[in-house]
Nucleic acid binder design. Structure first.
Lengths: 189, 189
DNA sequence: CCGTTTGTTTAAAACAAATTAAACATTATG
DNA sequence: CATAATGTTTAATTTGTTTTAAACAAACGG
């Protein structure tokens, strides 16, 4: 380690500010701040890092690092990289925030869609059955009809989520939106 | 209360399934399940509900209901409604999932943008200062330059978040995407 | 093989978040 | 104005989540 110069301290402080911003961001989306810092540390590092380096940098246990790294790998916002002659696993942050955004949100939007379509698939037949049950009280049948129709309308929303995922993953929606707005800006000037 | 007929029980079960799906969804996005159930209950109710009704329905304390309802109001995914002759406050769920999506995510994307632009505004001058400090060690200056440039590139991403918010809030992006895909489907058939 | 290094799992502890009941504040009404 | 009804805040409790240290398992190199 080199002696800590003034410039070096300044660098560390700048790093800390960026890291905090990233950790806050993860927090906004319900990701544990420690995991956020883990990502931020990797993001700021120009080299891939090992579990031990992360442990030293963050001052936490190796077990925590192992868990945190796995979460981030699952989210596909960090990657395992290989380097010949290196025994330890190396991790590298996804550096492209657009890719981060896409991995992070499409995964969630898809889960949302699946969870709710599954629920709907189970509930719809029940509502239907009540609607067609002439022995059921009118109020109950009306209620069932109301819900049945409401759910049917909601299907449009899950279709939208599906499109959104596709457009981001394959359709390059992010880039298109940016370009469109660049064009508008030029036009307006 | 009417006697619980078979049809009525069936209705309750269907409701429970839909509610679970919604609560799971909120959970995905880091919102407390109880608050999720609160929203789900209001969503399924054809009438606006009072705190007491929610307390009875969910079997929780009034204090919890008060807190949960405030969170949902802050998120703008439920609304307070007024009815003449009613002393208690009445709450109604946003029924349009598109509107839910827009309220929920644009708020978060904006926070993300603000938090990070704030951090960047603080960190950038520090990196700059190091870059221009001829007394600083080369390795430190290189590192500062590297980060400075990386951050500059990231600004594009926050511009994207901004556009996304605008497009959803004002530009009707959701509807446009749906229509575009409807058209594609017809064309393909 | 054997010892060492590395990463993972686990059970316990520390910590944080949610929940409650009760006190408090506010508002409405007669 | 006094009372009752309603909603909010608070402090204590409960519950759930994170974190750790240590045990364990797997892989590696000699």
């Amino acid at each position: 380690m080199s002696e800590p110069t003034a410039a070096h301290e300044e660098l560390e402080e700048a790093h800390a500010q960026i890291k905090n911003g990233i950790a806050d961001t993860m927090d906004i989306y319900g990701v544990n701040r420690s995991v956020g810092q883990l990502y931020a540390t990797l993001y700021l590092s120009d080299e891939p890092m090992t579990l031990d380096q992360l442990r030293d940098e963050l001052g936490m246990s190796k077990g925590s690092m192992s868990l945190g790294v796995r979460k981030l790998l699952d989210e596909k916002i960090i990657h395992r990289v290989y380097r010949k002659g290196e025994r330890k696993d190396l991790y590298q942050a996804e550096q492209d925030f657009f890719q981060f955004f896409i991995s992070f949100f499409t995964r969630r939007w898809e889960r949302e869609k699946n969870v709710n379509l599954h629920a709907i698939k189970q509930a719809q037949p029940r509502y239907k059955k009540i609607m067609e049950d002439t022995t059921a009280p009118d109020s109950v049948r009306e209620e069932a009809t109301y819900q049945y129709n409401k759910i049917n309308e909601s299907l449009q929303y899950y279709r939208f989520l599906d499109i959104l995922v596709e457009e981001f993953e394959e359709g390059d929606l992010a880039q298109r939106l940016l370009e469109k707005h660049e064009a508008k800006k030029k036009e307006g000037s």
